[in-house]
Amino acid sequence: MVELAAKQGARPTDPSVQASPLAIRGLTVSYNQKPAVFSVDMTVQAGSMTAIIGPNGAGKSTLLKAALGIVRPVSGQVTVFGRPLEKQRARIAYVPQRASVDWDFPTRVIDVVLMGLSRELGLLGRVRMWHMARAMDCLHRVGMHEFADRQIGQLSGGQQQRVFLARALAQEADLYLLDEPFAGVDAATEKAIIGVLKDLKQAGKTVVAVHHDLATVTDYFDHVFLINTRKIAEGPVAEAFTAETLQATYGGRLATAQIDQIAGALG
């Protein structure tokens, strides 16, 4: 039943799917028969900055990875700007969690950013002056241009995160998906990253980020997507980020006082 509904919802004629940079219908992803994400619909608004919020193990990263085709869902459909994901790879950029790679890998900062250009370069294309210039420009935007020749292992956690962001910028995508971009970074990096993300929004791009710091949601994002295996709420921050939805998402894991405080800050 759920699957059937999902398929109908994903018809390309559906206007909300057509217009959305990222539309997910009936998505279920499981690891060893235990669903991490169950029957989730998501419709990201064009030009929005959306935070995916939920407790640990709620399926936030899994949702993102399924949206990118990194993990294979049990069921469900993903459309990007109204078309199947595979046809739209060039329009998506991904910033993975910092912990997902080996930082002792023999590569320099600039080489990592150039990876963002590999679609354009193809197999045999040479790295030209303008490619280098573009990569350097991306490093500039995240404030890491002075580190271009450093081995990536010599960077601090925050700097590593900024290099990952620069690599995504190099792709010149229309939709940016970030997995906990602010996890374990210093305040300067957090400021730099949010600055870049807001610039992207200004330029009409769409940003979706897994986010874990409830205190900064209202400052950083305009839309939220609350998930705990199932979708709890979705929409503009003022509507969907409320005491009730937080309670429903976190259950007992979030003290009532905390929720009141956050909801109070919302006014």
Binding site: K65, L68, G69, I70, E86, R89, I92, Y94, P96, S100, V101, D102, F105, T107, V112, M115, S118, R119, L121, L123, L124, R167, Q171, L177
Partner: peptide
């Protein structure tokens, strides 16, 4: 010929998958 995709996959397989 295959060095770039092989290096990208070796460094960060998930990112490589995300770029298609």
């Amino acid at each position: 010929i295959l060095r770039r995709p092989m290096l990208t996959v070796a460094f960060d397989a998930e990112y490589a998958a995300a770029t298609g």
